[in-house]
């Protein structure tokens, strides 16, 4: 059965199975959003720029719905109502793929206890999805505090970010605290920032530019 692109459900849009793990979702999202980015050469002559922008936005919505477990459960329930979930539903426990995650590095373990204390996203009250996608107007500059605020607004714990981005929680904390002296050298910090920004759905370039300006300003006097 052929479907119009607007009618594809989020799983079909991201080209994954309804039983995909959060890692699979993240990988698929990374791949698909690159396919439908503006000016993508592979789409040339097939979709107009408005159509590409609309698909891109839907991919963002899909990711932000599926990557949070309780949002995904609600969405699955909706699909089931519409009889649009092709495969049998996984047991709820299947959603928890944390056991699949690679072992934590020693540096992560130091902050493991703190991380465990953080509320899991399931218990946390979720902000509506509509709010999540665009970068709020009030963020003029991506400082550590702004990034933290954005993360909290999206109902994500540091643990969630670490799971998806594979950046150690300690580094994420240092980024949010703007602990520039303890953060690693510029190149590594930049890499971590990019990964963090991607999980938040922000433009990595903008986040890096803003943040590294502050990073450079704080570090410069010492290097001279």
């Amino acid at each position: 059965m052929m479907k119009k692109i607007e009618d594809l459900n989020y799983y079909e849009l991201l080209e994954i199975s309804p039983t995909a793990s959060s890692q699979d979702i993240h990988k698929a999202y990374e791949r698909i959003r690159r396919v439908y980015e503006p000016n993508s050469v592979a789409l040339y002559s097939l979709f107009s720029s408005e159509e590409t922008a609309a698909i891109h936005q839907r991919i963002e919505d899909a990711y932000r719905t599926l990557v949070y477990e309780d949002n995904r459960k609600r969405y699955d329930a909706l699909l089931r109502l519409q009889n649009d979930l092709p495969e049998p539903l996984p047991a709820p426990s299947n959603y928890d793929r944390r056991q699949d995650q690679p072992a934590l590095s020693p540096s992560d373990k130091r902050s493991l206890n703190e991380a465990e204390a953080l509320p899991s996203p399931v218990e946390e009250p979720q902000k509506t999805r509509e709010e999540a996608a665009p970068v709020p107007q009030f963020i003029a500059e991506f400082s550590g505090a702004a990034i933290k605020m954005l993360r909290e607004q999206r109902g994500l714990s540091l643990r969630n970010i670490a799971d998806i981005s594979k950046v150690g929680i300690r580094y994420l904390e240092l980024i949010e605290e703007e602990n520039f002296q303890k953060l690693p050298v510029r190149a590594y910090t930049r890499g971590f920032l990019q990964l963090y920004a991607k999980v938040l759905g922000c433009d990595p370039q903008r986040v890096c530019d803003d943040y590294l300006k502050r990073f450079d300003a704080a570090r410069e006097p010492k290097t001279k």
């Binding site: 052929m2 479907k3 692109i5 594809l8 080209e15 396919v35 592979a42 789409l43 979709f47 698909i55």
Partner: peptide
């Protein structure tokens, strides 16, 4: 190389 995968995805979504 990625363009091949992108075209595959686009053909699936556009042409079915």
């Amino acid at each position: 190389i990625q363009i091949g995968f992108s075209m595959k995805s686009a053909c699936q979504k556009y042409f079915g």
